[in-house]
Amino acid sequence: MTSRKAGRGQQPRHAVELSFMAPRSIGGGVNHFRAQTTGSYSGDWDHGRALAMEYLDYVGKHPTNGNTTLLACIVLDMMKADTSKGLIIGFMGAVNEYAMSVARLLSDETLASNQAASLPK
């Protein structure tokens, strides 16, 4: 993995490319989660899942050292903004489903490797 820092006066790539992020107007930095509520739990849940898919697509295309902390920054800004439960649960549920799927694949590969290694030669 590589890390590419934004140059002086430039915003990090994720602040520009992800629809739910934006540069902070006061004090600098990035607002990592500025999604608006739809006004209903189910609408927020759907919207949160859509934003999670956008996030997962982005980090899949940009697996940098800098992006390893991006999810934590998103969660912290969700907490600061008192984000609706539907947005949080939709977003985090989708990210968790993806993480569980990948963990399962890796677990199966590890199991297969360990079984192959234990076979008599």
Rank of each mutant, 00 (worst) to 15 (best):
R4N: 11
P23I: 04
V30N: 02
H47D: 04
R104A: 14
G9S: 07
P12A: 07
S113G: 06
A72Y: 07
V75A: 13
M78F: 10
G66M: 08
R104L: 09
L119W: 02
A117G: 08
P12E: 08
E97C: 12
Q11T: 10
G7Q: 15
A116E: 15
D77R: 13
I89W: 09
W45Y: 12
S84E: 00
D44I: 05
L76E: 10
T2D: 09
S118P: 00
L18V: 01
M21L: 08
S25Q: 08
A116V: 01
A50T: 14
N114V: 03
M1A: 08
N96I: 01
G60K: 03
K121N: 13
R49F: 03
S25A: 09
E17R: 00
M21E: 12
S3N: 15
L119Q: 06
R13L: 13
S25D: 08
R34G: 10
F91P: 00
H14P: 00
Q10Y: 11
P12Y: 10
A72C: 01
T64Y: 13
N31S: 10
G66Y: 01
T2G: 10
L76W: 07
R13W: 06
L105S: 10
K121S: 12
N114H: 11
E54M: 03
D77P: 07
L87R: 08
T69K: 14
L56S: 06
S118H: 11
E17C: 03
M1G: 13
S40E: 04
A94E: 15
L71V: 06
V75C: 12
G48F: 09
H62G: 00
